[in-house]
């Protein structure tokens, strides 16, 4: 599903900062992968490149078999809209839109008619138990609810992959467990998922843990999930 070949990225500022120094990574369809690393290890940059939010200097990035390189803004927008669902640490819901409108927004950019996209959005909210909260604004929702709304928004376009940037970073441990449960369920339905986190407990709930250090992959650890107790293992 995702194939990275020798990805290099340098930020040119007052002092050039070589953030990614040749990343090679394969993620198969349906995998649940976490990327771990200390602050400054380049994990966020990697996620941005994966999400086509940022471009890279060298190497090749294949998403669903297509080379993602030197895209125009329009192509990038199209790719993000069709293939990628984002989940952010700070939820990034639009404050003046209700839950259902937030979820429906990606469909608006696909040109889905209003009625249909609201109906689809409602279905996804229902799936995460938020049907009754559909007409609430983000500031009327709890952190867990907000993150569930943003998961619904990420899923509504039926993307190929979900990219989650510290999805539990702003949540307490109990809510974190709930959210991880949902993300695992989503993954179980066949959607490839990449989670960036610095919490070991979260990473341990994924099939594969990629450790990043100083812009290179330190190691990739297969994680046998067998039977897992979410409550215990998150913390």
């Amino acid at each position: 599903m995702i194939k990275l070949e020798g990805i290099n990225k340098t930020y040119f500022g007052a002092q050039p900062l070589h953030v990614l120094k040749g990343i090679d990574l394969n993620v198969e369809e349906g995998e649940l992968v976490s990327i771990m690393g200390a602050s400054g290890s380049g994990k966020s940059t990697l996620l941005n490149i994966l999400g086509i939010l940022d471009n890279y200097d060298e190497g090749n990035y294949y998403l669903a078999g297509k080379l993602v390189k030197n895209l125009t803004e329009n192509q990038a927008a199209e790719f993000r809209n069709r293939f990628i669902g984002f989940i952010f640490q700070s939820f990034n819901l639009i404050p003046f839109k209700t839950a259902v409108e937030n979820v429906a927004l990606p469909l608006f950019y696909q040109g889905v008619p209003r009625k249909k996209r609201n109906q689809m959005a409602l279905e996804y909210l229902d799936r995460f138990g938020l049907k009754d909260w559909a007409d609430h604004y983000p500031n009327e929702l709890s952190g867990g609810q907000k993150q569930r709304v943003s998961i619904a928004r990420a899923l509504v376009t039926s993307p190929k992959i979900i990219l989650a940037d510290e999805p539990t970073g702003a949540l307490d441990s109990k809510t974190s467990v709930e959210v991880m449960k949902i993300l695992r369920e989503v993954n179980a339905s066949g959607i490839t998922m990449i989670i960036v986190t610095h919490e070991r407990g979260i990473a341990n709930l994924t099939n594969k843990i990629v450790h990043l250090k100083d812009g290179v992959i330190e190691n990739i650890k297969e994680n046998n999930l067998g039977s897992i107790d979410l409550e215990r293992d998150v913390k």
Binding site: G51, L53, E73, N74, A77, E78, R80, N81, R82, F86, N92, L93, I94, L105, P106, Y109, Q110, R153, T157
Partner: peptide, 11 residues
């Protein structure tokens, strides 16, 4: 930014 991330084209 959110709109752009969700697939809004610059135009």
């Amino acid at each position: 930014g959110i709109r752009r991330a969700l697939g809004a084209k610059p135009s």
